[in-house]
Simulated assay, not measured.
Amino acid sequence: MDMRSPAALALVAATLVAAAPVGGSSAAAAPRTSLTITYFEDAREPATRVAATLRCNPVGGTHPRRSLACRGLARVGLRGLQPLPRGVACTEIYGGPQAAVVQGVVDGQRVWVRLKRDNGCEISRWNRLAFLLPVVWTASG
């Protein structure tokens, strides 16, 4: 068969398409997570800012505990990053001036999360998501 004939070209093209992986490479099919996490020791003092990046699948970025943060994120998922429901009763307790902003993409979904310590509910949420902070955080700061 002459390889320049339309039938031969069609056969080669069909073979290449059949051999191609469905949906692209496995890396492209994996959910992507890419975040910038900015921590403020004191939200009123921009100079106290510490920022880091985090990528999962594969793990990367400047976060000092990337693997731990990715495992924690896989555990809580997008649901764990949701804001507190409106109208929920929270103890009026102040946990400190610390704040953090988590923004980017988790499992292909855009996220923007503000963490603070203004009341009992926010403190509890902060503690559940402390693995994301680019600093080793303890209750004393």
Score class of each variant (00 low, 15 high):
Phe40Met: 10
Cys56Met: 11
Arg71Leu: 14
Arg75Cys: 00
Ala10Trp: 10
Gly77Trp: 01
Arg110Leu: 04
Arg32Val: 15
Glu45Val: 15
Ala47Phe: 11
Ala19Gly: 13
Pro21Asp: 12
Thr48Pro: 15
Gly120Asp: 04
Gly61Leu: 08
Cys56Tyr: 12
Arg110Gln: 02
Val105Met: 04
Lys116Leu: 12
Val111Gln: 01
Val105Gln: 05
Pro83Gly: 13
Gly108Arg: 13
Ile37Phe: 08
Thr91Pro: 03
Cys121Gln: 02
Asp118Cys: 00
Pro58Cys: 09
Ala74Thr: 09
Ala99Glu: 14
Pro31Thr: 14
Gly61Glu: 13
Ala100Asn: 07
Val12Ser: 09
Leu73Arg: 08
Phe40Asp: 02
Val101Tyr: 05
Gly80Gln: 07
Val59Cys: 02
Ala28Tyr: 12
Leu81Arg: 03
Gly60Lys: 14
Trp137Gln: 03
Val76Leu: 02
Leu132Gly: 03
Leu73Met: 08
Met3Ser: 05
Arg125Ile: 00
Val76Phe: 02
Lys116Tyr: 10
Ser34Val: 08
Leu81Ala: 05
Gln82Glu: 09
Asp2Cys: 03
Pro97Trp: 13
Asp2Tyr: 01
Cys70Pro: 14
Ala18Gln: 13
Arg49Ser: 14
Cys70Asp: 07
Arg117Pro: 03
Glu122Asn: 11
Ile123Leu: 07
Thr138Met: 02
Gly95Met: 04
Ser25Ala: 13
Arg110Gly: 00
Leu35Met: 09
Thr62Tyr: 13
Thr91Gln: 13
Arg4Asn: 14
Ala29Leu: 15
Ala99Met: 14
Ala13Arg: 15
Leu129Arg: 02
Ser67Cys: 01
